[in-house]
Design a protein around this nucleic acid. Structure first.
Lengths: 221, 221
DNA sequence: GCAAAAGTGTTTTCAATACACCCATGG
DNA sequence: CCATGGGTGTATTGAAAACACTTTTGC
């Protein structure tokens, strides 16, 4: 094998979730120098024996204990000097998880990640700040059109005000409650659970869930 | 460097153009066994000293003599056994060129590529058939919303019937001439050249061109 | 004047927007 | 009964879709 064609590839995972109607990304604090104390995205070098998706899943298993996350491709960074020293490409992926499951698993572990509001990303190692902002921008672009993806954020029951504040947080603008409800009802992909959310204040909100088969329910295409 | 982390990456380019209102992709015939006589996408192994985009441009320069193409990321294929023998990842890119320029350059060269209608892809080597179909599907998804991209297909003057048949060919459906014209006129990104196309038959069509600064002209966002 | 292809206007439909009042609950 | 947040209906606007006749050119 000619040396000129040998490359290393880093698989970098951006794990998103929603908590209290806000989209958050999972970061870990680097324990050693350089960049000690800065935040990082979970990543690993790709082995010759695994696919990108397998590598990403192994990484997330290692960092969080979570298994079988579905990843979507985000970007590839191939600048020669993106890292000091060896040339390493970055293949970045987006994964979405349910925060309840994560919390249950985190409970048993020593290393704890922290969820950061996507509008409040901290100082990060190397180009991880660029990578996570790129992934967030990718997410913003596709989420409003990809109902399978938003379903990953809400695999269980949720209320429309929760869903609405998620979009408001993602898009950084206020939406009208009546129009928001009308749109989602007309999509015909929600099921009324006939249940209501335990409330803290005011009238309790109805709980909905996504239908099993979203694609069949959507009229377009 | 640990051997387990050494990978080879193939940069695979999908070059599209439009000819007679049909979108075509540039393929070359493989000259040697295996797969002799089958068609292939221009590709090269990524060197440690170049970025993905640089590699793609070097590849296209080598195959066609064309320079400075703007590429957009399509997909990454990382299946372990996508090729027999060594494990090589494929990073696939999409580029768009003006067929007139290509023809001028092709004229001086021995190896000639062939433009294939995207609805008539021939037998291809290895997984290049999968790759080109994936790139075509990617193109279909973004072209209707990306006016900078369609502008790359028509850098010079064009007629609305030409543009319409391009979309009809891409989307595999007939469009209404009146509605098509209305939509493009309202976008406010076309300039009337006050000229008309040389015709073969019937009334000559008006020639338009894309405005210099499309983004400023679009109302949305 | 006729064949061939381009240009044009109106109506309908549907989704997105704007907007204000009533309802259910806890305390 | 009141504070808090959730649920609801109607009118307007704008884009997309449906649809048929006239105009320009070459021959």
């Amino acid at each position: 094998m000619n040396n000129r064609y040998i490359n290393q590839i880093e698989v970098v995972t951006n794990i998103f979730t929603v908590e209290n109607g806000k989209i958050k990304v999972l970061l870990f604090r680097k324990q050693e120098d350089p960049f000690k104390g800065y935040w990082m995205l979970p990543s690993n070098l790709l082995m010759t024996t695994e696919t990108i998706e397998e590598c990403a899943n192994a990484t997330i298993l290692e960092f969080t204990g979570l298994q079988d996350i579905h990843f979507i491709q985000s970007s590839v960074f191939s600048e020669i000097h993106r890292l000091p020293g060896a040339r390493i490409l970055a293949n970045t992926l987006i994964g979405v998880v349910d925060i309840k499951t994560v919390k249950r698993i985190f409970g048993n572990r020593e290393i704890e990640g922290t969820w950061f509001d996507i509008n409040e990303i901290p100082k990060m190692i190397y180009d991880h700040g660029t990578i996570v902002l790129d992934a967030i921008s990718h997410l913003k672009k596709i989420l409003p059109y990809d109902y399978e993806l938003i379903k990953l954020f809400y695999p269980n029951d949720f209320t429309l005000p929760e869903l609405q504040s998620t979009y408001e947080h993602l898009l950084n603008k206020k939406l009208d409650r009546r129009n928001f409800r009308k749109k989602w009802m007309n999509l015909n992909i929600l099921e009324d659970t006939m249940d209501k959310k335990d409330h803290t204040n005011g009238r309790p909100a109805k709980l909905y869930r996504f239908k099993e088969n979203i694609k069949e329910s959507i009229v377009n295409e």
